[in-house]
Design a binder for these strands. Structure first.
Lengths: 76, 76
DNA sequence: TGCGAATGTATATTAAGCTTTACATAGTGT
DNA sequence: ACACTATGTAAAGCTTAATATACATTCGCA
């Protein structure tokens, strides 16, 4: 049973590393609302790859450094 | 004017490099339907980062090697 | 002590990812 | 000619990402 995606992210850590960038600042830079950033940080959902890449780009890191799969082995 | 995401992908190329893996095989390995793979290949949409990472993992490459942002500069 | 800035919670609504089913076309082999 | 496999198209439906709005909390600061 793996209906929920189970993805970890280091958004908050990176924001803090980036001179304490706020959720709103980050949202503006990638073109989404603050709610979206907050929900991703809280693990409430699994963003599109486009958004994920823009986020990683803001921090100058790879997508895989910002998001991690749950490593449940298979896909189910 | 970049409301639509505009993401390029190298899914087909990678499939062919991977010994001609079929859309169905790939779909099975990442746990989605063939339609989903086809639609992504055709650029009809922008998968979730979870799926993008599983796809990249199948080919042993980074997400950024499989998907590319439109490079429109900003987010609009 | 009260204001503003940053984060969190809640809920309702819209947009888009993904599934399911069904059919159509092109290539391959017998 | 017929069957089989891989790919493409299309539409209906479900689930979830993302928006919008509103309010609550904590903190620093004038």
């Amino acid at each position: 049973m793996k209906s929920r995606e189970d993805i970890r992210n280091h958004l908050r850590r990176q924001r803090l590393l980036a001179d304490g960038m706020t959720q709103q600042d980050l949202a503006d830079r990638v073109g989404v609302t603050r709610q979206t950033i907050l929900s991703i940080e809280k693990g409430k959902y699994n963003p599109s790859v486009g958004l994920a890449m823009r986020l990683a780009q803001v921090f100058g890191i790879a997508v895989e450094e910002l998001f991690e799969l749950g490593e449940g082995g298979g896909h189910d």
